[in-house]
Design a protein around this nucleic acid. Structure first.
Lengths: 233, 233
DNA sequence: ACCTGAACACCGTTCAAGT
DNA sequence: ACCTGAACACCGTTCAAGT
């Protein structure tokens, strides 16, 4: 009757390792090195084993399966996000700092974009950020479930902006391409839609990276304004 | 000197198939059937071949690689999204309808959540939606690059809400679990954070599905309010 | 023009066996 | 308690060969 329990590394006792042999920390560190160097597709259990000069399957002693390993590295990423105590700087500044920080952390670890929103974020680092975010929105004046809803709104925005940005970077990075040729092809795909063509002309000579910066800021301000508006009513 | 071109099915000439043999449509239909039934992990080229009672590798005649196939099915998903002409209903209603429609389409094809924001959306259906969205925000009063920024903001929100929702559904679906047991474990993970614990108590007996509905609406209204605010300044 | 099968170079995971 | 290697059941993709 008692169904299988929800699966997360963080919800089960780890193996009480006396200290010898490899450790989870060591494994996670090695995994992140591989991930930063070769991306999510580059991380295999065999390669990780090799990097630790261990048998390919030794890792299964420390971790039930690859997904658990990914949960572990994922929480490390959450640990890199910086968020001031909302009580110190006020909720809007805290929210902005968190947003920019999340974006830059993910851009630094592009593989993490594939985990964002997909993997349960129940590690200590993730929970700490979640907790601060709750306090932030309570400080702002939200109550009850609205604290939650405001939080989802903000993180949804950040995820939704960051994921495509990373995806774009990686497609562009793989095949280095001729920008003019590409513009011509996209223009072709879009040829029946005057508004879309107009858009292409507009942004033709802007630096894509700063455009994305500005876009992120524009949206963030909008989202925060929108949340502020909810407080008034 | 002329680098490799940006890769997308939509940016290259398809094979001019006279008509005999399999067709792309047929392949895409079969692929979607598999995807709906077994999810993204359930779709392999071999299985797809088998379903078409063809050799495992015949598909490579119609498609350069699996990613192209995914681009094709992805655009079908865009085709299911419904969006009224903004001129008919006004920009805010059009935006809301699109948002709800996107959410429900993705919930219907959960595998598509893994493509959202990752795959170039250059198919005719995706472009049509993008075009309407541009017209929508122009109608609202945005100009220049702001039309784009407003669009990114809205889609970022939708992506960022939908992706985790689907992920959650699928983790919950796989292992059917004992809710009490699970709550206990999560409570344990969160034990040092009084605000997080409070949150768990609060939402203890709510139906998760309606909570997510309400959350989606809350955030959407906030985002649209925030965008409206930008028009005023 | 379209399809095939064999082959290559991988995967994650299980498990009996070792120390 | 920790690690190993072999094995299982898969992958996507290439390519020479067939019709």
């Amino acid at each position: 009757m008692t169904g299988k329990q929800f699966a997360s590394v963080w919800l089960r006792e780890p193996r009480k390792t006396a200290s010898p042999g490899r450790s989870r920390d060591e494994i996670v560190r090695a995994a992140i090195e591989i991930l930063d160097a070769e991306g999510l597709g580059g991380l295999s259990m065999r390669k990780l084993g090799a990097k630790l000069s261990a048998g390919a399957t030794s890792i299964y002693w420390y971790v039930a399966h690859k997904d658990e390993l990914l949960e572990l590295v994922y929480d490390q990423v959450w640990g890199e996000m910086s968020m001031p105590e909302p009580e110190d700087v006020g909720w809007r500044d805290a929210a902005s700092v968190l947003a920019y920080s999340m974006r830059s952390v993910i851009l630094r670890h592009p593989w993490a974009a594939d985990l964002l929103g997909r993997m349960p974020a129940l590690g200590p680092n993730a929970i700490q950020v979640a907790d601060r975010m709750r306090r932030m929105f309570k400080l702002a004046g939200f109550e009850g479930m609205d604290v939650d809803y405001a939080g989802s709104t903000l993180t949804a925005y950040i995820y939704g902006m960051t994921i495509p940005e990373v995806a774009w970077n990686s497609t562009m990075g793989e095949h280095e391409y001729d920008p003019d040729e590409m513009r011509a092809m996209v223009a072709r795909a879009v040829r029946d839609f005057p508004d879309m063509l107009e858009r292409m002309d507009m942004s033709a000579y802007d630096d894509p990276q700063t455009v994305r910066q500005v876009a992120f800021d524009f949206g963030l301000v909008s989202v925060l304004d929108g949340l502020e508006r909810r407080l008034a009513t």
